[in-house]
């Protein structure tokens, strides 16, 4: 038996609905036999009547409703059809959910699932990685699971957290990634993972880019160069200690992110390493992101827009040469 990343998300939600009466799922096209644009809730509406609810095309009101329900003691999961559409709900997420606990001491335990990141042919409005925007604002926890195991355990943990959680699930990984079985162990939220130990350079990354980084590391192995790959897992909080420990081992840092280049996760990681671990660096830290244009539709353009094995490898050589 094998489990895909998408099935892990569905199984996590099934478990949550089974184990906790306070959980319900709220989103567009998620109920009935249809089960969501990506089938992440397939079968759940039938299995849990009244707890998997279709909503109007109203991202702002979907999140607003979830906030109210959470403040009333429920544990809503909001499925955005695409992460990109969460921009319509930005106000509710940032200003209502994100400020609620600080202002009123009332916890606001919503989980917003964002089907994130690019796939071929999806274009500017169905491909975005928005973890940087959400991390910039206070009061939110932002997660980017990169493995089947993390997709499962981090979603279960997300719903248990008393604060608003932005759960960025990568659409490219939905079907591409498989595990033998659902995990029985987990790493806690807020901890990064060294996915591949190395000696010569640390690639710090998250979400689907973890797999690009691993492919690059495999490539360099033939040359006797050992790259360490760190999967952040949680963008906020950011596990600075694990990143610094990795840089201490390798002396070189390359941050890889699928999001746009201005600011964001890669910039934050470099800022932290530069301020807290400058003495650990043997070369200037580097980063590689998507290009600063809208995400293109055509596969030829799309594959050049985001970091890929080729561009990451070129950047690695550059940092190693310093």
């Amino acid at each position: 038996m094998s489990v895909t990343y998408l099935e892990a998300i569905r199984e996590a939600q099934a478990k949550l609905l089974r184990d906790d009466d306070r959980v319900f799922i709220y989103g567009q096209d998620i109920a009935g036999k249809f089960g969501g644009a990506f089938k992440a809730t397939k079968g759940l509406a039938e299995q849990f009547p009244g707890r998997v609810l279709n909503t109007p095309i109203s991202e702002d009101a979907m999140v607003g409703t979830a906030i109210g329900a959470a403040m009333e003691g429920m544990r809503p999961i909001v499925e955005m059809q695409f992460a990109d559409f969460s921009s319509v709900a930005l106000n509710q997420i940032l200003n209502n959910a994100g400020t609620q606990y600080w202002r009123t001491q009332t916890p606001c335990p919503i989980t917003v699932r964002l089907p994130s990141g690019g796939t071929k042919g999806s274009g500017p409005f169905h491909s975005q990685s928005m973890e940087g925007i959400y991390s910039h604002y206070p009061g939110l926890v932002v997660l980017t699971p990169a493995t089947v195991e993390d997709a499962y355990t981090m979603l279960i943990d997300a719903v248990a957290i008393d604060d608003p959680v932005i759960y960025c699930e990568h659409k490219y990984l939905y079907y591409h990634l498989k595990a033998d079985a659902l995990p029985t162990e987990k790493l806690p939220i807020g901890k990064a993972r060294v996915v591949r130990p190395g000696r010569d350079l640390s690639i710090v990354t998250n979400s689907a880019m973890v797999h690009e980084a691993l492919a690059v590391a495999q490539q360099f192995r033939a040359e006797g160069i050992e790259l360490e790959v760190v999967d952040l897992r949680s963008v906020k909080p950011l596990d600075t200690a694990t990143v610094l420990a990795s840089v201490a081992r390798t002396g070189r840092l390359l941050c890889v992110g699928e999001a746009f280049p201005w600011g964001g996760v890669t910039a934050e990681v470099i800022a932290r390493v530069a301020t807290e671990g400058f003495h650990l660096l043997d070369a200037a830290p580097a980063r590689i992101n998507a290009k600063d244009t809208p995400i293109p539709y055509h596969p030829n353009l799309w594959s050049e827009h985001r970091p890929n094995a080729k561009t990451i490898a070129a950047k690695v050589r550059q940092v190693l040469a310093e």
């Binding site: 607003g64 409703t65 109210g68 009333e72 429920m74 200003n95």
Partner: peptide, 20 residues
């Protein structure tokens, strides 16, 4: 919050939860 209309759906959520 200052953003007008934002509280309407929050009230809806409170009421939905009470019913649940």
């Amino acid at each position: 919050i200052s953003h007008l209309g934002a509280m309407v759906s929050v009230v809806v959520g409170k009421l939905l939860a009470k019913r649940m």
